[in-house]
Design a protein around this nucleic acid. Sequence first.
DNA 1: CACAAGCAGTTGTGATTGCAACTAATAAGT
DNA 2: ACTTATTAGTTGCAATCACAACTGCTTGTG
Lengths: 156, 156
Amino acid sequence: MTQILSSPILRLDQSWAYKVTVLADLLARRVTAIVQEASGLNLSQWRVLAAIGDQPGRTASEVVKITPMDKGIVSRGVTSLAQKELITRRASETDGRLSHLYLTETGEAIYQAIVEKLHRAGLIDVGLLTEGETESLLELLQQAIQASRERDEPRL
Amino acid sequence: MTQILSSPILRLDQSWAYKVTVLADLLARRVTAIVQEASGLNLSQWRVLAAIGDQPGRTASEVVKITPMDKGIVSRGVTSLAQKELITRRASETDGRLSHLYLTETGEAIYQAIVEKLHRAGLIDVGLLTEGETESLLELLQQAIQASRERDEPRL
DNA sequence: CACAAGCAGTTGTGATTGCAACTAATAAGT
DNA sequence: ACTTATTAGTTGCAATCACAACTGCTTGTG
């Protein structure tokens, strides 16, 4: 059925954007707690660690691209992780501006331990949804992300 | 296919939790920009306003319940919105602790204007997904939220 | 009624964030 | 080659947030 009223209505409990927001916040709180307890890292430090663990050799700006983080935050994350000796920077030989990032042995251990805990907490796989549901959720989310990225500067 | 390796792997681009996080952040930035430009309100003030517009008479703690916000933030939001005369508090007659919140005329106007803009920006309805897709996305998100809420204190 | 326990809302504070200004290195244009 | 534009990454700072302590009201128990 189509909209009857002339002005659009915001029904929070029917807004996908709102639900995504609420869910993301719940997830962030749980991940933060787990990461904090397991390693003392904060959420953005963990995100940087995870992005590197996910694909070693990434540069800071690549981390920014795949992550919902400001480059300032990533920069600070990289610095502090390097100080804690969880990652190392290796300057690129072909481009003096960037360095590739790798987990140290300690970093790898912490990374694995946290992944394990997140896994058990159902924050990686989805124990709650069936395999098919998960798949379609992933697809829908990806579409929404893409669309949101494309729309990003439509000068409203 | 099931997992072959012994330790769970975090593939970011296949993690629903990660995608939800990225998407929520993209959405938050866009909503913030729109709201800021339209009204000068920040995101949490807008969220409070929206929660009241969505269902007038809500109390602050009800806003907290349906929203991913700390009660401190809601409290400050309510205070500042009241100062700007976008909402009014009406003390409950039956319970001296709480007050019901309502939009003023100005508040209503701003609320409507922002909803309109968000709508045009595709942040309420989903122009990007079909109706069926939207529906299943909503359902899946709701399930995930519920599950996440229930799991919230599993003392890991 | 008195007392304990719980809930609504406020406020203080250190930590975290987002933005923008800045440096340094590379790429592009002429 | 030289000048300009872009990109990587760092840093300063004001705004925002999360958490916890606190006040005051209400509910439950005896």
